[in-house]
Amino acid sequence: MPDSLKDRVKAAAGADEPQPDHQPVTDLAVNDSARQWLLRRETYFTDALPRHVDRAHFMAVAQARMEDLKNCTPASIHTALLACARFGLEPDGRQAAIVPYSGVATFQPMYEGYIELMYRHPRVDSVHFGWVRENDAWDYTPTEPSPRDFYHKPRVDLTDEERGKVILAYAFAWIDGRRSQVIILNRSQAEGIRNKFSKAYKKAESNGKRDSAWHTDFDAMWAKSAVLRLRKVVPTSTELAELIQHDDDLDDAHTVPPVIRGTVISRDDQPGDGEHPAAAASWPAAAQPGSGARDAEGGEEQ
Rank of each mutant, 00 (worst) to 15 (best):
F218M: 05
F218C: 02
F218N: 08
F218P: 04
D219V: 05
D219A: 03
D219E: 07
D219M: 01
A220H: 06
A220C: 03
A220M: 02
A220K: 01
M221P: 02
M221C: 11
M221V: 04
W222C: 00
W222M: 05
A223L: 01
A223P: 07
A223E: 02
A223R: 01
K224C: 04
K224P: 01
K224M: 07
S225H: 12
S225K: 02
A226L: 10
A226N: 00
V227I: 12
L228H: 12
L228S: 09
R229M: 09
L230W: 12
L230A: 09
L230S: 00
R231I: 15
R231V: 12
R231E: 10
R231Q: 07
V233A: 07
V233N: 07
V233C: 13
V233I: 14
V233R: 06
V234C: 08
V234M: 14
V234D: 03
P235E: 01
P235T: 07
P235R: 07
P235C: 15
P235H: 05
P235A: 11
T236F: 04
T236Y: 04
T236A: 02
T236S: 07
S237T: 09
S237Y: 08
S237E: 12
S237F: 10
T238R: 14
T238F: 09
T238S: 09
E239G: 00
E239S: 03
E239Q: 03
E239M: 01
E239W: 01
E239D: 01
L240W: 15
L240Y: 10
A241K: 14
A241L: 14
A241P: 03
E242V: 05
E242Y: 04
E242M: 10
E242N: 08
I244D: 12
I244A: 15
I244Y: 15
Q245F: 04
Q245M: 12
Q245K: 08
H246V: 06
D247P: 03
D247M: 14
D247W: 12
D247K: 11
D248S: 13
D249R: 13
D249T: 01
D249E: 12
D249A: 07
D249I: 04
L250Q: 02
L250T: 08
D251R: 02
D251G: 02
D251K: 05
D252N: 15
D252Q: 06
A253W: 06
A253L: 10
A253N: 10
H254M: 08
H254S: 13
T255S: 09
T255N: 15
T255H: 02
T255W: 14
T255M: 14
V256L: 09
V256I: 15
V256S: 06
P257D: 05
P257V: 04
P257G: 04
P257T: 12
P258V: 15
V259Q: 11
V259K: 03
I260H: 05
I260M: 13
I260W: 06
I260L: 08
R261T: 11
R261S: 12
G262F: 00
G262V: 06
G262E: 08
G262Q: 04
T263L: 14
T263G: 01
T263C: 12
T263W: 11
T263S: 08
I265F: 06
I265V: 15
S266T: 04
S266L: 09
R267D: 15
R267L: 14
D268K: 04
D268W: 09
D268F: 07
D268P: 00
D268R: 05
Q270M: 09
Q270F: 10
Q270K: 15
Q270S: 11
Q270N: 03
